[in-house]
Design a protein around this nucleic acid. Structure first.
Lengths: 270, 270
DNA sequence: CCCAAATGTTCCGCTATGCGAAACATTAAT
DNA sequence: ATTAATGTTTCGCATAGCGGAACATTTGGG
């Protein structure tokens, strides 16, 4: 099973090595790359900014963005003269979510664990070099993380990302880790150590842990699993670091996560 | 302000009349059209099905779908040999939602009204010929509609759609209604009557109503408004028809919606 | 087991298509 | 007025993407 591409330099997609891939449609990839520029923090982007971020020349950016506006995936704010994401992207996400059966199946048990642990319980899948939440339930406690369905988390630093990597067959994990190393050159040694610790954790106890490694004051534990449709996912429980101590994660929540996964998948580990 | 296109026949986008629009990137439009084929009911689609639905010849469909897989927007199920939506589409939706400030602003008051009315309160925007929920809160009552953020509702039959139309400047409304009439040829006379009733309702009382017109046993009332970022939206309250009687919608919930909108936008009507 | 039917992929010549440098608008700032 | 910055449009060119046809691959039926 070939893993999909992971980098964000679109130019290289079509021109892998020498084979100018005639089966790859650049115009489509470039247009989607424009949409990817937007994020919770990046609300309005003009042609120049989009052009700079994607490396696509201005005229092409203008044409592609114009096309996306006509299709409803981008809005052009008349006052600012800048683009923002349009409603078109929303219903795609909705269609995707409602086809993930595991959400319905797992939600009650997830809610229960969230209440018990006074934290957030989430299911995530991998997209490029991030994990993306497809379901998340919060305890009814006063405050909790505001990360909802669709938010992205780094593979290397989070419990959920490490669990996913741990659940992957070795060849695919190597492929991904290679990508990661290219992307993080800077502090790869450190990240790699964290991932490898995750592999050991998983082998020994069945779950991976991250203690304040990604965000200060947030800790989590996670377990990989294969859902009813044969997709690899990971289930995590995370929240305030002062609540979720290492001891609690290792001896209480972690084992509960493992049995939750056995409960919802009937399969347990891969 | 030119309204974006609304039809789902992609071919005509590029070739409007005589002007072969060189500013429109067909390959991008066609690729996105493939994604649109998937919906909550349509989970797995093969090349032939995609090809038939979109009118794109099979080889092109194959190439475009392959590209989307490489980019993470589609999965190719190895067992079925069919495509399904990939995680890529999710984070786009998340990025869009988190940039809609009105959600944060309105949520508490919406929740309050949902509890009071024992129904669902939602905010929707228009995409092509549908309204799309960008926020929705349910009462904590035992059952409620399962339509979440991102789900689509028809413009003509729903309270939220009629409210949106009522809030539109006349020129844009006419444009949209023209599109609607083409799309619904069949029963346009009836739909038109419903919309025009909505316009009158809005003029007289400030809200639009739909009583069991879209789904049996579901009734709703809705109000258009302009959000903090100058986008036209609509706020609706809908639920079980036996609870939300005409009297209650007209004399209780409707007025409450109007004041809710005044409260959150400070602007009220357009 | 073979043949037929159906689906998905690849080939390959052709040309419409999308590309991007440069020119042209439109604004904003000084 | 002048400069700078951003967005749009033009237009000739190269090629990216197109799609008919051929080629695989799978399924199912007799």
């Amino acid at each position: 099973m070939a893993h999909n591409y992971t980098d964000n330099d679109i130019q290289q997609f079509g021109q892998d090595a020498v084979t100018k891939d005639r089966l790859f449609v650049m115009a489509l990839a470039r247009g989607l790359e424009l949409l990817r520029c937007f994020s919770p923090g990046e609300r309005y982007l003009g042609v120049t900014e989009l052009s700079r971020r994607t490396g696509i020349p201005k005229p092409s950016t203008s044409r592609l963005a114009g096309t996306l506006v006509k299709l409803g995936y981008l809005n052009l704010s008349p006052s600012l003269g800048k683009y923002s994401l349009g409603p078109g992207v929303l219903s795609l996400g909705y269609a995707m979510l409602s086809n993930i059966d595991i959400r319905r199946i797992a939600r009650p048990a997830m809610q229960e664990l969230a209440e018990y642990s006074q934290a957030s319980v989430s299911i995530g899948v991998c997209d490029r070099l991030s994990m993306v939440y497809v379901e998340t339930v919060r305890s009814t406690a006063p405050i909790g993380t505001r990360r909802g369905v669709g938010s992205r988390l780094p593979l290397a630093l989070t419990a959920i990302g490490r669990a996913y990597l741990a659940g992957l067959p070795e060849s695919e994990r190597d492929f991904l880790m290679n990508r990661l190393s290219l992307h993080h050159e800077r502090d790869w040694a450190q990240l790699r150590a964290g991932i490898e610790q995750g592999l050991r954790d998983y082998a020994e106890r069945g779950f991976c842990i991250s203690i304040s490694e990604w965000e200060r004051d947030v800790s989590a534990v996670a377990v990989p699993f294969v859902d009813v449709d044969d997709r690899l996912m990971a289930l995590s429980c995370g929240g305030a670091a002062f609540l979720l101590t290492r001891d609690k994660l290792e001896n209480d929540i972690g084992p509960r996560l493992v049995s939750l996964v056995q409960h919802i998948s009937g399969v347990g580990r891969i």
